[in-house]
Design a protein around this nucleic acid. Sequence first.
DNA 1: TGTAATAATGTAATCGATTACATTTTGATG
DNA 2: CATCAAAATGTAATCGATTACATTATTACA
Lengths: 345, 345
Amino acid sequence: MAKPYSRSDPRGRHDRSVSIAQVAEHAGVSVATVSRVLNSSEAVREHTRQHVMESVQVLGYRVNQLARSLRTDESRLLLALVPDIDNPFYAPIVHGFNAIVQEKGYSVLLCETGGDALRERRYLDLLYSRRADGAVCLDPDTVQKAMGGAAMHFPWVACCEYDESVAVPYVGIDNCTAAHDAVSYLVGQGHTRIAFVNSDTRFMYARERLKGYQDALQQVNIACRPDYCVQVQSLDFAAGRQAAASLLALDQRPTAVFAVSDTLAIGVMRGLYDAGLRVPDDMAVMGFDDIALAQQTWPALTTVAQPMRTLGEQAAWLLLKRLDDGTGTQGGVVLPHRLVIRESA
Amino acid sequence: MAKPYSRSDPRGRHDRSVSIAQVAEHAGVSVATVSRVLNSSEAVREHTRQHVMESVQVLGYRVNQLARSLRTDESRLLLALVPDIDNPFYAPIVHGFNAIVQEKGYSVLLCETGGDALRERRYLDLLYSRRADGAVCLDPDTVQKAMGGAAMHFPWVACCEYDESVAVPYVGIDNCTAAHDAVSYLVGQGHTRIAFVNSDTRFMYARERLKGYQDALQQVNIACRPDYCVQVQSLDFAAGRQAAASLLALDQRPTAVFAVSDTLAIGVMRGLYDAGLRVPDDMAVMGFDDIALAQQTWPALTTVAQPMRTLGEQAAWLLLKRLDDGTGTQGGVVLPHRLVIRESA
DNA sequence: TGTAATAATGTAATCGATTACATTTTGATG
DNA sequence: CATCAAAATGTAATCGATTACATTATTACA
């Protein structure tokens, strides 16, 4: 007759773990006291503390964070929403992000959205339902969704992909200028037939870099040939390889290729190798991002570097500030890019 | 006088979201009824359902999963503990895992432990405190830890890295035989001076593959030269490159190199390129894993393939079964590996 | 229309914590 | 030793859900 009804879960998947009440009983004190020693907040006599800690040990008690979060409205968990973990571009960003927030006692949960609306929605739900305190979002879709929904009231920041019209703090680089710089470099090397391998224009960076490419050409009065702009579906090596093949099939081949990501650029180099062409002699190749692999290819890849780790760190600072301030700063941080001249162009 | 005391959080980071009670009041019904329409479980009159749904819409109500989980003891969240997301080996595994569990309504949270005990502990804590229902673990450290602690009572499975003495379901390959096969292939190609680039022996696979390497050599009466076994600290390209350099500094150079990962093997190839050697003519190179990049290098990498996606899928099945059964199956699943002959050896 | 069976809804306990306020202990001081 | 302030601890409300059991409304049948 103790409990009016028994546990709801009939499967009995596993026993509930030991609760604070059990610790209290074992130690012969109230739950409040146990809570106090656990949070080492208020005054509790040393003697009592020891007693309680002993019971904690004996019973193997661990605080139930669900209950704690429900009460305190904080989880010490942060989300990182990335489109695809297979893309080596994201790892350093996440690492930078993690390094900063970890010091503040937060743990990072990586959420791979895969561009799937359902998955994305579910992850965002963690924010809505307070199971996570905040998020950094590297995903264009999420940004879009956020515009429509009421997501703007939640503490999150955008990284790399952002939309200035969305009132959310962001950090990124000037993609347009960066692409412009890359193409200008190729022009400076004497190239006039420069191809552009772009990816999904759902991504802002893709649109911006296209713009930079076009601007740079226009600036030196080179017409932008549509057949030199190849659009691929994914960012993996295979896509770049195919892009190279299609470029090589052209009547008048380009003498240089600028790809919007290093992975694509490396794929392009592979495609050129397939055809027996040499880089950069037969064709120059330039990438974007400066992933770790870029300096390991042969020839090593010339590219425009994004400060990925710093991007992640800055995103972390922005988010932490937002969590502190309540409202948080609007606007964004634009970090500098850098041309990295290696052997491929 | 309504509430004895006000909200605890003085920062007022954000307003609490609308609760089920508010919906109930708005709809003029009890919370039980609201809960019923939300969980579409028991009978509730169509008229009432509509009314409630309307209130849900109007107020923008979203169920608080924290509270729900606290009550129901289930979160529909699964963890994937990986040592390092920068390693391209893990992505396909996670994808396979995700594909399966997603259909069952679970979301996957990626946890990068980075080999850091603190981070690992925190993530495992999500399991302990029921914020996650289960986990797949690709991390050797966790396995070790689990042996000591009481973690065996929690629903998790090991993938790739496992310890047969730990009573936890696992899925992996036969690393020893796989390495044996690789080395035997090189021997069959006429190589007798075969180097071995290994990584952190904290990993089981590293120990097993070393064993396979040694066994294969012994089988054909080739002495295992310590100077041909180079141990590197990480799995990245740079480490492989350095390994190559140290191998090339030897008086009697090997004619073939077998690396425990494709990333290392690719780094080795880069190192050979540095020295002006050609693969496979001057030196054969063989990797392990068959990551996507392996078929994009030039020359393309000969390697032993792990069925990574399948590994993830199997891990998912094991975990789901464990979540269903309560106790779950012990023992493990060993998946076949496959030699992939390309150009580098 | 009365009544029993059933369907729909409400009430309140519960999950496991935190914490405002109340109460008891303790220790210091006169 | 009495008294009182300060320190330690206890009591109970609360977070936002689920759900067993109780209660009320509806329907069916005589």
